[in-house]
Design a protein around this nucleic acid. Sequence first.
DNA 1: ATGGCATGACAATCATGA
Length: 281
Amino acid sequence: MQVPLRLATWNVNSLKVRLPQLLAWLNTRTVDIVCLQETKLTDESFPKQELLDVGYQCHFAGQKTYNGVAILLRTDRVSAAEAVVTSLPELDDVQKRLIALTTEGIRVVCAYFPNGQSVGSDKYRYKLQWISTLTQWLRAELAKNDRLALLGDFNIAPEARDVHDPVLWEGQILCSDQEREGFRGLLALGLADAFRLFEQPERSYTWWDYQNLAFRRKMGLRIDHILLSPALAKICTACEIDVELRRQERPSDHAAVVATLKHGQSEKHHAPASKAHAAHR
DNA sequence: ATGGCATGACAATCATGA
């Protein structure tokens, strides 16, 4: 069976406010695994029944006012979640920025990277530390899981072409050398930026400021990403930004990113490295 | 000019975002 699998990430900037848009989006788009950031909800007030009613099982880690992440699984299309974790084991952190689970033999990691506020601030140092801890943890996860996807709001524009005005943003938060070095550190684990596996339109962004008509003027940044392990990059057939979400009434300031995977045979999940190597010759 | 929105907590402004 070769049914395509679609993975998405969207920073909703308050799930309470964006729930109607999310429900409508889930009804019109075929997405199977949906990572959300900035839910800004405690776990008690997570709208799990509403999402269950449209066919999604929810896993979430939230807090009052800030942060909060969730993964939604379309239960008729993907297997039940296993090995759910709701924090980075190595980091003692009250901020809810990470949730991970395994479905369909895929380790799905949903992350809301710290913003960093301004270069050199305490929050900036926390951001770099958080990225470093995530990277170390992912190294171990990749050793255990061939198929791994890291989705989320990275709060990093990796390259000049991901920024509407690279000169204006040079060295600024989201674009600083150390943040970009952190992003490259994730790629160095073997992960691929799914969006850049394909030819893309120029000025493709995922975030636009609410102010100054930034969206209409195409003044954005590409800071939401889907990174795929080699086994998943190999079967990725598309990666697109859903800008329609940003065009709506009372939108989130982020658009969603959606990747499509050819749903490979399950035997590939546990293919030993030696065998994969042999197949190359 | 470090603002201009938007969101949430809280009750007039303030913290935070990116």
